[in-house]
């Protein structure tokens, strides 16, 4: 894809903004529409756009497949770990009241941790799936279209 100059220039400008928007959606999810699921997908979309424009090999250099493999598991562990932490602090599983000195603060902390886990898991899984599909060799070349 060396000849698509406009696409390359525009996406170079857009990709950081998309990633930034993902984090806005993540951390503003308590106050407006948004949350871990949406932010994870948007973050994955920025990686996918990078891979589409600059090639899969470049994308794998910047976000190595090992990272997303670890991120996948880490997200689920962070979610489950929050539940175990509330257990150890004397509450029920995923009962965030015990995480801070008062119940509402505990709920805020718990929701933040859990949504971070969702973000990690969803974005890693989406990127993983895209890498898996993108790395297969098609038996038809682009010229056959």
């Amino acid at each position: 894809m060396t000849h698509h100059v406009i696409l390359r220039v525009v996406s170079k400008f857009l990709i950081p903004l998309i990633a930034l928007f993902a984090f806005y959606v993540q951390f503003h999810g308590d106050y407006g529409p948004g949350g871990g699921f949406q932010a994870g997908v948007i973050l994955a979309a920025s990686v996918i756009l990078y891979a589409l424009i600059f090639g899969l090999e470049e994308a794998k250099k910047s976000i190595p497949p090992t990272w997303v493999r670890v991120g996948m598991a880490l997200g689920v562990l962070l979610y489950g770990g929050t539940g175990v932490a509330t257990w150890l602090l004397g509450g029920a599983f995923l009962d965030y009241d015990v995480l801070a000195h008062d119940a509402a603060h505990g709920q805020h902390h718990g929701i933040l941790a859990v949504e971070l886990g969702v973000l990690l898991a969803v974005s890693s899984v989406m990127v993983t799936i895209f890498y898996a599909f993108g790395s297969r060799q098609p038996d038809l070349t682009d010229e056959d279209w």
Binding site: G35, F37, V41, V122, V125, I129, F133, R136
Partner: peptide, 19 residues
């Protein structure tokens, strides 16, 4: 909300089987 994300995950499994 959760069903949509789970839906795309299962769609990915189906597409992998198709491939």
């Amino acid at each position: 909300l959760t069903a949509i994300v789970v839906g795309v995950a299962t769609l990915a499994i189906g597409l992998a089987l198709v491939v």
